[in-house]
Design a protein around this nucleic acid. Sequence first.
DNA 1: GTATCTGCAAAACATTTGCAATTCT
DNA 2: AGAATTGCAAATGTTTTGCAGATAC
Lengths: 135, 135
Amino acid sequence: MDSQMIAEQLLNHGIKPSYPRLQIYKYLYMKRNHPTVDIIYNSLVKEMPTLSKTTVYNTLNLFIDAHLVTSLNLDENEKRYEIIIHDHSHFKCENCGNIYDIPYENIQLLPEGFEDFQVNEVQIFLGGICPHCKK
Amino acid sequence: MDSQMIAEQLLNHGIKPSYPRLQIYKYLYMKRNHPTVDIIYNSLVKEMPTLSKTTVYNTLNLFIDAHLVTSLNLDENEKRYEIIIHDHSHFKCENCGNIYDIPYENIQLLPEGFEDFQVNEVQIFLGGICPHCKK
DNA sequence: GTATCTGCAAAACATTTGCAATTCT
DNA sequence: AGAATTGCAAATGTTTTGCAGATAC
């Protein structure tokens, strides 16, 4: 996906595609690495020396309000962010700290007697040891 | 469950059952309401005027280390705590903010090709509208 | 030229830490 | 007395906010 298409995605969600916004969205789109604000900032500040963390925060919150991005609380003090993609859970390795996307389908989350709950959002977090660290 | 049994549970996990510890554990055990530190503190300080939030924090972390309690990040800034109970997810109503325990069983979380991940911990968060608010 | 966007500095929180006072045995 | 526990005050770290300067159309 090139910058032109990313700009269109932002415009489609009512967001003016300024340069910082394009770069932050592009970062999330290309890397898919569930970054923290710090990770995004440190990566982009190399190419945008005047970038501030405030702008990263503001932009991410803008994306969240526009339902382009979601934030994850993976059991630490700081939030992580990712482009909204449906039907996958997050596996965090206790050993190496890596975060993996795990797809799922057709999970029955509401048992009998709970059908009246209207589910709009699902977040599944898994903790354990990843294949790489098990060897 | 009375104080005597709670004291035994703490002792079984290597925790000396001081009065604040008993009260905090009892609160979690009886209420089952996924409280924040603030909620616990404000509830208990009525009966224990000298209680401090530091003690609530310290005690909860002690319980977590002993695997008696777990903390939840339900998408806000502050953590919530609950007695460890297996195989249930948390549903938070977008409207009233209530948190519900939803039981589940035999959910297949790892699809084909991901069997090498060793899952030690599962947290499922659901957001939406509860039956009470749908009416 | 006006509205929007950016970014510095300060504020606002939740949580942790250092350490002295208290409590328990 | 000695060891563990408690709690105040200060520190820490993330995220938000106020506002002035910069940018875009």
